[in-house]
């Protein structure tokens, strides 16, 4: 390497040290633009707060109007078994029941499949296999729910009807909607659970292998329990997602509140009901208009509660490995 001696040669137009840059004191300068920008950015951040306040205010206000109406009785709202606004019957149980049925069905599909996928991806799959499988699962999560609804109605329901007989299975039924919803939330369960499994340190796995455990024993008896809080959080988020899911049930579960435990009968969920009522000609300040906000408030409280619970679980039971 040739020796580049450091040579500070003057450039052709060497500048005077004071030229160009203003020489001022160190005193604080006024920068009004900086403050304005910071104010604007704060407003952007605060819009999310406004959104929450808006949701709570809107749902709360219209629900208050609903419960204050002479036709509505708070106790009957929670215990009544019919929801027929036309004849002044406002019992939310049929709607909640249908929501629970579809969500449970979805979880029955999504929990075992999702956990198996998570274990496979985090413990077994080669890098190549992961590179193929994960994007496919992401595609599954990215398909719009209306497409899933279409699939439930035009593929899943006919399939159920051909297996169990058209007399057993209605054209609209909660089972079909629930199963397809399970596929929709499968990627959510698997990716969140996989994150939890991957967060378990290698040293723990090595300890198990060092004691002569098989890969399965390591995965199921060491890694899975260590990741349990993360997995529980994932499942709760998934339930919340299932409760709030709308289009699949609106298309495939049925249009009419119906208190039934038969998953092959039509029944309308909370979300399905909101969509059907607001999709029609809805006049403001009618009891119908107010009633969907009351249902919406219930939905909001349930999903918010589940999400907060999920985050609490992660925070409280997070294992600290260091």
């Amino acid at each position: 390497m040739p020796n580049h001696a450091i040579e500070i040669t003057s450039g052709p137009r060497l500048l005077d040290a004071t030229q160009g840059v203003a020489r001022t004191s160190l005193g604080r300068r006024r920068r009004p633009a900086e403050g304005l920008i910071q104010g604007f950015l704060f407003v952007c951040g605060a819009i999310s707060i406004l959104t929450t306040v808006g949701i709570v205010f809107v749902l709360g206000k219209e629900s208050l109007l609903f419960f204050a109406s002479p036709e509505v009785d708070l106790a009957r709202f929670f215990t009544g078994t019919t929801w027929q606004p036309a004849i002044g019957q406002f019992g939310i149980l049929p709607l909640i029941n249908a929501t629970l049925m579809t969500s449970m069905m979805a979880m029955v599909v999504a929990i075992p499949l999702g956990l198996c996928v998570a274990v496979y991806l985090s413990e077994y799959a080669s890098l190549r296999a992961r590179g193929i499988l994960k994007p496919i699962l992401e595609v599954l999560a990215g398909v719009p729910t209306v497409v899933y609804g279409y699939f439930a109605l035009s593929a899943m329901t006919p399939l159920l009807r051909s297996i169990l007989g058209p007399n057993t299975v209605d054209i609209y039924n909660t089972a079909s909607a629930g199963i397809v919803m399970g596929i929709l939330i499968l990627p959510l369960v698997s990716s969140m659970s996989e994150d939890a499994l991957s967060a378990v340190p290698r040293s723990l796995r090595e300890a198990a292998y060092g004691l002569g455990a098989t890969k399965l024993e390591t995965a199921l008896k060491v890694v899975l329990p260590a990741a349990l809080s993360g997995i529980a959080a994932a499942l709760i988020v998934a339930i919340s997602r299932a409760v709030g899911e709308t289009m699949i049930v609106a298309i495939a579960a049925g249009a009419g509140p119906n208190l039934t435990l038969n998953p092959f009968k039509a029944a309308e969920t909370m979300t399905g009901h909101i969509v059907r009522i607001s999709g029609g000609d809805l006049s403001y300040d009618s009891i119908d208009y107010n009633s969907i906000f009351a249902i919406g408030l219930m939905l909001f409280l349930i999903t918010l509660g589940l999400n907060v619970l999920s985050r609490q679980i992660v925070r409280r039971f997070r294992e600290v490995y260091d």
């Binding site: 949701i55 809107v58 709030g244 899911e245 709308t246 909001f300 999903t303 999400n307 907060v308």
Partner: peptide, 27 residues
């Protein structure tokens, strides 16, 4: 305030989309 904003954003991400529809309808 800032930690409230942050928590609030993660909570909003979990609100069912239909609730946003009701917010939009009313507001």
């Amino acid at each position: 305030v800032n930690s409230i904003i942050q928590t609030n954003i993660s909570n909003l991400a979990g609100v069912p989309s239909i609730i946003y529809g009701m917010l939009g309808l009313a507001v």
